[in-house]
Amino acid sequence: MAGRAEAASNGGRTANRLLQVLRLFAREESLTAERIAERTGIPVSTVYRLLAHLTEFDFVRRSPAGPMYAAGPVAVQFAERYRSEALLRTTIGPRLARLSQESGELAAYLVPVGTEALCVDAVEGLRLLRCCYSRGATQPLLRGATAQAILACLPEERRQAVYAAYDLSPEQVGDLEAEHEQVRREGVAVSEGALDEGVWGASSPVLDADGVLGGAVTVMAPAARSTHHRRYYVRLVREAARDLSGGTF
């Protein structure tokens, strides 16, 4: 009986420690094992064992850029489900539906999660479009209008962490920073074929009352079909972002 009680006690302590670690990833974009140990008081050797378990089941993933850990696919799915439910109680869903109706194209809302952009809601246009933006899908915060709209409005430290994660050269970082300055100035980013061949997109950042990024609104359309409507689509996506930002853009 004593052995069984001790095993139960150890199991409960491990579960508590796992939850402590997971809770940190709800607050931080990425962490090292040493930083987790500092924040939780858990021995670093134990932290590594916990991270191994969480990585095995996709709650946490290790960054290819170094000894950093971030939320994994399963954790992102939890976040996506939470955000999807929250969207039902906000103006985002109806505003996306209006944007899709006005443009006749796919409209989506994405948020930054670590070094990726997560699509939390998408509304198909009158004509279906095959592209990478579907609800729950993630894409690297690296290429395309949405990535640039989001990156442009992230704090410097977070942008640099994304650049490091994708091992970008100083020249590549310089080019992106120039693009981001233009996005901040104009309130919109555009791209063609960056993620899906033959697809054009326009994206505008959504900011809260304090100017903190919440996400980005995007319209995507076949490049050939959008040729004569791009200025109109840009205006629509900026208006949608402005409405959701409370008039920021």
Rank of each mutant, 00 (worst) to 15 (best):
A5E: 15
H229M: 09
E116F: 02
R231E: 13
G247F: 07
N16Q: 05
E186H: 14
A202H: 07
L236G: 02
Q20V: 01
P205R: 04
F57C: 10
R235I: 00
T91K: 12
V212E: 11
L50W: 01
A194Q: 13
Q139C: 01
P205D: 00
D210P: 05
E34M: 06
G11A: 13
L213C: 08
S204P: 08
P155H: 11
G187R: 06
G125N: 01
A216M: 02
A165E: 14
R127M: 12
G193A: 09
E80T: 15
L128V: 07
E80P: 04
P205Y: 05
S100Q: 02
V21R: 02
A86R: 10
L142D: 01
G104F: 04
E28K: 12
S226N: 08
R35A: 12
E192T: 14
Y166S: 07
I92N: 08
G41C: 04
E171G: 09
P64R: 11
G3P: 05
G41K: 04
Q101W: 07
Q172I: 01
L141W: 01
A33K: 04
C132G: 06
V212D: 12
V44K: 11
E177G: 05
R61I: 02
E29K: 10
E29F: 04
A240V: 01
D167P: 05
A107N: 03
R35K: 15
G11K: 07
G247P: 06
A161Y: 03
V76C: 07
Q160E: 15
P205I: 00
D175E: 14
D196H: 02
R17Y: 06
E197T: 15
V47C: 08
L99S: 08
A152Y: 06
T46N: 11
R184E: 05
T227F: 14
G11L: 09
R235Y: 13
A7Q: 09
C131I: 00
L128N: 04
A209Y: 12
L24C: 08
L99T: 14
E179M: 13
V44M: 05
R39P: 00
S63K: 14
A178C: 07
L110S: 12
S134Y: 03
T115H: 13
A8L: 15
L18H: 07
R242D: 12
V123W: 02
S226I: 01
